[in-house]
């Protein structure tokens, strides 16, 4: 699994980095921690000092989180930054014991564009990104609602991390019939890492649950049953969804399967992802 962790110097990025480290150490993911430097900031020939220092601190979470076990990323320090392109700097952990790669990268440019570009270049399977408590709150310089935009536009699933909470249920909300194999596998990993229960939530309109959604829920249930994962089924009506998601977020990791025909757009009227992120005060997993 390849994981991309976009960061800045705000506290929510530290939270996201810790979450990403926990997931990465369990899944032995190859990780890229990506810092974005806006065009006007810092010197031209080196990454911004504050960003670089924050990234080194985030990096430590990946090296120390393994407890008594050996970290898959080894036990070294990041090597000095080196320029690998115009406005691009990279470093990685120089460790002979490393079994997986932990790369730190700083790119200059538009935050959203750089994140999407890096995800495409790496072939990332998963993005973990921190978010202010409300998506419109200050943060992620230069981009309003950045996390929601990343979640909407990224080619892979995105975990928007808001605050550290214990998760006892992983919840996947389904309102359309597109569920990729990758998203099923990612849910598996989330359930395993958090030792959580799985809840599959079908979103119903006033007319009831769409036949295709219901059929897909059955397939998803079968998939997890075959894997020995206990999955609960719940149906929620669209007018109850926001409240339901907000309540569920107290102890659950709320995930939504985003498909082209998703009518979450109607429920979370302005923008489905930012509305869901706003409706919950914990992390949101956007499944692609």
């Amino acid at each position: 699994m390849k994981m991309l962790v976009p960061v800045d110097t705000n506290p929510y990025s530290a939270v996201a980095a810790r979450k990403a480290a926990k997931l990465a150490i369990n899944t032995w993911a190859d990780v890229t921690i990506l810092g974005i430097q806006t065009a006007g900031s810092a010197a031209n020939n080196m990454p911004d000092a504050a960003l670089s220092s924050a990234m080194s601190a985030y990096c430590k979470a990946f090296l120390s989180n393994a407890g008594e076990m050996e970290s898959p990323y080894g036990d070294g320090e990041p090597a000095p930054w080196r320029a690998t392109g115009n406005g691009v700097w990279e470093t990685s952990i120089a460790s002979e014991t490393a079994k997986k790669s932990l790369r730190l990268m700083v790119k200059k440019g538009s935050t959203l564009d750089m994140i999407l570009e890096q995800a495409a270049q790496d072939g990332s399977d998963f993005i973990v990104i921190g978010s202010p408590a409300k998506v419109a709150d200050p943060g992620w310089t230069g981009e309003l609602d950045l996390t929601a935009k990343v979640a909407n536009k990224a080619p892979c699933s995105v975990l928007v991390v808001k605050e550290e909470k214990s998760v006892n249920t992983v919840m996947g909300i389904l309102d359309q019939d597109h569920v990729s194999q990758e998203s099923l596998e990612l849910i598996n990993q989330m359930v395993t890492v958090h030792q959580a229960e799985l809840k599959i939530v079908g979103l119903a309109t006033a007319k009831g649950l769409d036949e295709r959604v219901e059929m897909k829920m059955g397939e998803v249930l079968d998939y997890y049953a075959s894997k020995g994962v206990k999955a609960w089924i719940t149906m929620v009506k669209e007018n109850e969804m926001e409240d339901f998601a907000a309540r569920a977020a107290e102890t659950s990791l709320v995930g939504i399967w985003l498909g082209k025909k998703s009518f979450l757009a109607k429920i979370f009227s302005k923008d489905r992802v930012s509305q869901l992120i706003n409706a919950t005060n914990s992390s949101v997993l956007v499944l692609k």
């Binding site: 699994m1 390849k2 032995w28 079994k99 990758e182 998203s183 598996n188």
Partner: peptide, 18 residues
């Protein structure tokens, strides 16, 4: 992952992967 490496695996990949 640790047990796999102790048993001599070459690499350990978590799904999903490309």
């Amino acid at each position: 992952a640790k047990e796999s490496f102790q048993k001599g695996v070459f690499d350990f990949l978590a799904k999903p992967f490309k």
